[in-house]
Simulated scan of single mutants.
Amino acid sequence: MTETPDWAGKARVVMLGRQGCHLCEDAWSVITGVTDELGVDRAEESLDAVSAADREEYWDKIPVTFVDGRRHDFWRVSEGRLRSALSG
């Protein structure tokens, strides 16, 4: 997939995940901490709610984090890397 999905621009940081995914819970915890500290908006999008093409693209990479509408990380979220992306 070459185009950024529309839902990836819902907030400054968007995480694509799925309920019951322990990696998603861990990633959301990091995202919440960093975005709260920096005063940045965030949103969570369910893999089950996106298009079939997006599910095909991202199902094996969740959680997938987008910053400013662009894919940033997948599987795990690095607090330092996220903070750097939001501060730069």
Rank of each mutant, 00 (worst) to 15 (best):
M1A: 12
T2N: 15
E3T: 13
E3M: 10
P5A: 08
P5C: 08
P5W: 01
D6K: 15
D6R: 15
D6E: 14
D6V: 14
W7P: 06
A8P: 03
K10D: 06
A11Y: 01
R12F: 00
V13P: 08
G17R: 01
R18L: 07
Q19C: 01
G20C: 00
G20K: 01
G20R: 05
H22K: 11
L23A: 08
C24R: 01
C24W: 00
E25V: 12
E25Y: 04
D26S: 11
D26E: 15
A27K: 02
W28L: 13
S29V: 07
V30R: 03
V30Y: 02
I31C: 03
I31Y: 07
T32W: 05
T32Y: 06
T32G: 12
G33S: 13
V34A: 09
T35C: 12
T35F: 05
D36S: 10
D36H: 10
E37F: 06
E37N: 08
L38H: 05
G39L: 02
G39Q: 08
V40N: 08
V40I: 15
D41L: 02
D41S: 06
R42W: 04
A43Q: 07
A43P: 01
E44R: 12
E45A: 10
E45P: 00
E45H: 02
E45M: 04
S46F: 00
S46P: 02
S46L: 12
S46V: 00
D48V: 06
A49S: 15
V50T: 04
V50A: 06
S51G: 15
S51Q: 09
A52G: 09
A53I: 05
A53V: 12
R55L: 04
E56K: 15
E57W: 09
E57V: 04
E57R: 15
Y58M: 09
Y58H: 10
W59G: 02
K61A: 10
I62H: 03
I62W: 01
I62M: 08
P63R: 08
V64T: 14
V64I: 09
T65C: 13
R70F: 02
R70Y: 04
R71I: 11
R71C: 06
H72G: 10
D73P: 00
W75P: 03
R76S: 08
R76T: 13
V77I: 11
S78M: 05
E79D: 13
E79S: 10
E79Q: 14
G80C: 02
R81T: 14
R81K: 13
L82I: 12
L82V: 08
R83C: 01
R83P: 04
R83W: 00
A85M: 06
L86E: 04
S87Y: 03
S87C: 00
G88K: 13
G88H: 12
